[in-house]
Design a protein around this nucleic acid. Structure first.
Length: 818
DNA sequence: AGCACGCCGACT
DNA sequence: GTCGGCGTGCTC
């Protein structure tokens, strides 16, 4: 044991800005390492699990450091790269490293203490106690242990600490902080035959001649164990197979015929690797894969742009297999929603149990298991996961794949860290010195620009893999049909006709209605025109209470026009309709048809999403109505028709990405149509069949979309030419929020210059849980120093927290907000 | 995030 | 008068 006094700087799991220094007790000197979890007392008496970020010998000068309570791990559970990655994320996304740690660690690794109140056994004289104190002591005599919440319930009061404090002084009670280890390894019970009866089963059966059920179980056991090298059988499976219960088996154990063994098993038991070789690539795919490798020679990142159905997944698998053959490790990131059993199954068929899967629908214990398996670096060759998989403790990564790179769900909004997984992956790759492959059928404008500017390598695939033709795309002109009175509520006769046809052909149908279309827009009933902001290139949003149209970005507002600026009609009104309504109406038009809906409401539970997909695959559903969910990662082989119910609603969403997103959604959902032998059809309902974005969709012209859109982005100062940081101000008093937001933006304008600051603006939802909201936006040139801007922003936030009128106003900072 | 301290209204 | 509510500041 070394004698010198050590100190550790730790990350506490709270939204506090700094690392905190603790003194290491001498006896733990050799036990403490960077990346381990330690127990520290932080504040009055709370214990927390902190992670060691630095071990050093410099005693703090300003204060006396507290001692560490304990070291939880023998080996680090977090490596140095992760700590740098956390720090980068905190700096870049303007949050605390504690918040990053909270997001990074699976909950079961973050134990925190609960204060427990116990009676002091030496305490007898209750005469001096107050009424409340008496109540507490009384309850403790019955229950022995109480939590602070229990006491609060008993007293029917919020404030309990003063009473506890008084009881402590009178030595009536003692406090205890209990830390609970939350991770429980999964235990499985196995049954095996007692040695004595191994070669003499007859004797065992003789013992059971008056217990037919048990004899039955033994018989089934013997059958099950036949092709089992270990001579053991899963207790639950035996129970199931013999249709018995736990006590039947216990009886056999008591008779010493069976023996029980409890074994810690992984939660993820795969079939043994099928060791299938990597997939056969088509000529096109081989070319793409070779190009990717060529680019990797001098580029860290490659963008793979391949139309839907071009077989990007096979290319990923092929590439990963090559890396793995050289001993490499891969991370495969997908949007949460695309992480379907279909995809995971495909990966497992190639890589067997060398695949780890990590996402938010796993429970804590499962996540800790993957975490620990990742530390044990040879366990997985590939980890497939949603954005949080970035935080796994990889020792060394060689390839990161970000599939559906354009997906906005890679960006986390709430809570902090508000990070974008694709962008964070690029940084993580830099730290691991590894390669990144971004893949999409409809790349984000930013990524495509990066590729065009030679920051990324670009590889494109224009043909579909299996020879399936790209679908035929039609427009249904809503305006035209309205004139001829042929619209049936939300359905054009054109679409209805195609639905009928598809049903007759026994083909399945997907109808797509964008939920984001719920943004309240003011729109012309005759031509679909939506008022636009003159300086921001976004649609104006209608605010009912003020009866004003206002811009989400610059905050300018105006009165709704009386007549349509496009066609002169006076039929202007608020619009928006959702999937539920569509499903309802559809059931009226097609009463005999099986219709299902897939959106956030119908997929809340763990397996709901998979169930709907399975039903659709089994053709138990004829028409699937859904939101964006239906556009993601699903491969069905019998979809004859895809309908987009209202393209205009997404085109006029008040967001500078409206066109990009509309194109992506329409292209992705169209990609669902088509069968092996037959070309699929897509019907897009719109007021503006000539809208340039719809035209690009119809001709599958991504390059055209990009060319047009990149001009708009430059003109209106949006990414990739400018970066955005959005600010949200919150306070309980409306006028305080307003004034603070005004003051803050004014200060920023002085420091950053007028054109770089927009707002403040009242967001559409202007009050949440009694907090009034205001928003503002910082826009700055791509080549300006983001660090400098963030520093100014941080200084300004500090000033706000010192301002006597505004100090209680919260500011939420969202960097690269979408 | 807790928890303490300190300031203010509404009850014994 | 005090109890208990809430705003503010600090935690190594």
């Amino acid at each position: 044991v070394s004698r010198e006094t050590k100190f550790v700087d730790v990350i506490v799991p709270l939204a506090v800005p700094n690392l905190y220094t603790y003194r290491v007790p001498l006896e733990l000197n050799d036990a403490v390492e960077v990346g381990q979890r330690v127990v520290v007392q932080f504040g009055k008496n709370k214990l927390y699990t902190a992670v060691v970020a630095l071990v050093h010998d410099k005693a703090p000068l300003q204060y006396t450091a507290k001692y560490l309570h304990a070291v939880l791990d023998e080996q680090p559970i977090v490596n140095n790269i992760q700590i740098s990655f956390w720090q980068w994320m905190a700096d870049y996304y303007c949050c605390t490293i504690g918040e990053v740690m909270l997001a990074a660690l699976p909950a079961a690794l973050k134990l925190s203490s609960e204060t427990r109140v116990l009676l002091n056994p030496d305490f007898t004289d209750k005469s001096q106690l107050s009424d409340e104190e008496y109540l507490i002591v009384d309850a403790l005599e019955i229950q022995q242990v109480l939590s602070l919440q229990d006491i609060s319930d008993i007293l029917q009061k919020q404030t309990v600490y003063p009473h506890i404090k008084s009881l402590l002084q009178q030595k009536a009670v003692v406090l205890e902080e209990e830390l609970k280890e939350k991770f429980k390894p999964k235990i499985k019970a196995f049954v095996f035959l007692n040695e004595r009866y191994k070669n003499n089963t007859e004797e065992a059966f003789n013992l059971l001649n008056r217990a037919p059920k048990q004899a039955d179980i033994l018989l089934i056991f013997l059958q099950m164990v036949k092709d089992n090298a270990h001579g053991r059988v899963d207790k639950l499976k035996l129970q199931e197979a013999s249709n018995s219960n736990a006590s039947n088996i216990t009886a056999l154990v008591e008779k010493n015929i069976f023996e029980l063994e409890e074994i810690e098993v992984g939660r993820f038991v795969f079939d043994p690797s099928k060791a299938s070789s990597s997939p056969k690539l088509s000529e096109e795919q081989t070319r793409a894969s070779e190009e990717i490798k060529q680019h990797f020679i001098d580029k860290q990142t490659v963008l793979l742009h391949g139309v839907t159905g071009s077989g990007k997944t096979e290319i990923y698998v092929h590439l990963m297999a090559e890396y793995i053959a050289k001993g490499g490790k891969c991370l495969y990131l997908v949007p949460e929603i695309a992480l379907t059993t279909q995809l995971v199954g495909r990966l497992k068929s190639f890589f067997g149990d060398r695949v780890g899967v990590y996402h938010s629908k796993f429970n804590d214990n499962e996540r800790v298991e993957i975490w620990q398996n990742t530390i044990n670096e040879n366990r997985y060759d590939v980890v497939i996961g949603a954005r949080s998989a970035l935080f796994l403790p990889f020792e060394k990564l060689d390839l990161i794949i970000v599939d559906e790179e354009h997906e906005s769900s890679f960006k986390q909004y709430e809570p902090a860290p508000r990070y974008h997984a694709r962008d964070a992956a690029l940084m993580l790759a830099k730290m691991h010195e590894c390669k990144v492959l971004l893949g999409s059928a409809t790349p984000s404008i930013e990524s495509y620009w990066n590729a065009k500017e030679n920051h990324f390598g670009l590889v494109e695939l224009f043909t579909r893999y299996s020879g399936v033709m790209l679908p035929e795309i039609f427009c249904a002109d809503i305006q035209e049909e309205q004139k001829r009175k042929k619209m049936h509520s939300h359905f054009s006769s054109f679409l209805i006709e195609h639905i009928k046809q598809a049903l007759e052909n026994k083909e399945q149908i997907i109808l797509f209605q964008n939920r984001r279309g719920y943004a309240p827009l003011w729109s012309c009933e005759d031509c679909g025109w939506v008022p636009q902001c003159h300086q921001c290139d976004v649609s104006l949003t209608y605010h009912k209470h003020s009866h004003l149209l206002s811009c989400h970005y610059c905050g300018q507002s105006e009165k709704p026009p009386i007549t349509c600026k496009a066609c002169g009609s006076s039929k202007l009104k608020m619009v928006g309709f959702g999937t539920e309504k569509i499903e309802e109406e559809l059931a009226i038009f097609f009463p005999a048809v099986k219709i299902a809906r897939m959106d956030l409401d119908t997929t809340r539970t763990k397996h709901a999403h998979a169930n709907i997909i399975e039903q659709f695959e089994n053709r138990d559903i004829d028409i699937l109505v859904g939101t964006q969910m239906v556009t993601k990662g699903l491969d069905f082989d019998n979809v004859g028709l895809v309908g987009v119910l209202n393209a205009d609603l997404m085109l006029s969403f008040p967001d500078f990405r409206a066109f990009e997103r509309s194109y992506q959604l329409m292209a992705q959902v169209s990609g669902r149509a088509g069968r092996q032998q037959k070309r699929g059809k897509v019907v897009i309902q719109t007021y503006n069949p000539n809208h340039w974005v719809i035209q690009k969709v119809m001709y599958n012209d991504y390059a055209g979309l990009y060319q047009q859109e990149i001009l708009e982005r430059r003109n209106f100062k949006y990414p990739p030419f400018y970066r955005l940081i959005s600010l949200t101000f919150k306070h309980k008093d409306r006028s305080v929020t307003d004034k603070a937001a005004q003051w803050f933006t004014q200060q920023l304008i002085e420091k950053l210059g007028k054109p770089r600051v927009l707002g403040p603006e009242t967001p559409y939802v202007s009050r949440i849980r009694n907090y009034y909201l205001k928003t503002a936006l910082i826009k700055f040139e791509r080549n300006a120093s983001a660090k400098a801007v963030k520093q100014i922003l941080n200084e300004q936030t500090t000033l706000l927290s010192q301002h006597k009128e505004f100090k209680s106003v919260r500011v939420v900072v969202d960097v690269d907000s979408i």
